[in-house]
């Protein structure tokens, strides 16, 4: 397995404010798979993503990416882990507002010695004509595409997407999902997509449903529906 998550437990606070968000989550994802982590607000899905992404420390458990254990790594080692293995896409894009589209992508290009071709990426994501614009001059979809390009430029082993369509309308959401699908097919990038949108699970290889800090369902889709055909986005 490319990604192995074993009995992750994560809690916050102490005494009266103590809350256990993850109560022992175990799952795995194969390389090249698109996987959705679904659940209601407060179910622990974002926490799980943050733990896998090394953005949050686990209380206990194990996370291995391509055999590399990340539990217990120092903050500097975790930073290197994110640099070498991961790409991130956020709900509200989180583009650097005073950098152009091109420069935003270069933020992550700088981090790797073997980036993808920037011009090709711009072309693939339909950003060539927008490359010298600032985020404020772009639509939501264009900004998210820029964020995707930024995440992809370093050819990450694992792409973590936190509500990538959460801030977009249905048409734009569909476009983004089509793009992610294309990226997965073209580059074979393993993806973890956190969403509360029910429809997305139909286009991915694996579905993980979390409730109250535990995995309620964990299954692989036998019949994938292309993103272009998804309804009720």
């Amino acid at each position: 397995m490319f990604l192995e998550v074993n009995n992750i437990k994560k809690s916050y606070g102490s005494d009266a404010s103590y809350i256990q968000v993850l109560k022992g989550v175990t799952t795995s994802v194969r390389q090249g798979q698109m996987c959705v982590i679904q659940g209601t607000s407060g179910s622990g899905k974002s926490t799980l993503l943050n733990c896998i992404g090394g953005l949050d420390t686990m209380d206990s458990g194990s996370v291995k990416i391509d055999g590399k254990e990340i539990f217990g790594l120092s903050p500097a080692a975790l930073s290197d882990y994110r640099r070498d293995y991961l790409g991130f896409i956020f709900q509200f894009y989180n583009l650097v507002p005073n950098l152009t589209v091109r420069e935003n992508i270069q933020v992550c290009q700088y981090l790797t010695g073997n980036p993808l071709d920037l011009e090709d990426l711009l072309e693939t994501l339909g950003l060539t004509e927008h490359q010298n614009k600032f985020p404020a001059q772009l639509s939501g979809g264009q900004q998210q595409r820029c964020a995707i390009a930024r995440a992809l430029i370093k050819n990450p082993r694992l792409l973590l997407c936190d509500e990538p369509t959460g801030a977009l309308d249905s048409k734009t959401s569909r476009d983004i999902l089509i793009l992610l699908e294309k990226v997965n097919q073209t580059y074979g990038t393993t993806m973890l997509i956190v969403t509360h949108n029910n429809s997305i699970k139909n286009m991915v290889h694996k579905v993980i449903i979390i409730k109250d800090g535990l995995i309620k369902q964990d299954y692989e889709n036998s019949a994938l529906i292309p993103a272009a055909e998804l309804e009720d986005l």
């Binding site: 650097v96 420069e103 614009k133 001059q137």
Partner: peptide, 28 residues
């Protein structure tokens, strides 16, 4: 909303990403 003009739309020709970032930061 941040107006694009508030970031001083300057076409920076430098190929050095760090330098470009620093200049953008200074302008901001």
């Amino acid at each position: 909303e941040q107006k694009a003009s508030s970031y001083r739309q300057v076409n920076l020709k430098s190929k050095n990403f760090i330098r470009v970032f620093q200049i953008r930061q200074m302008l901001r």
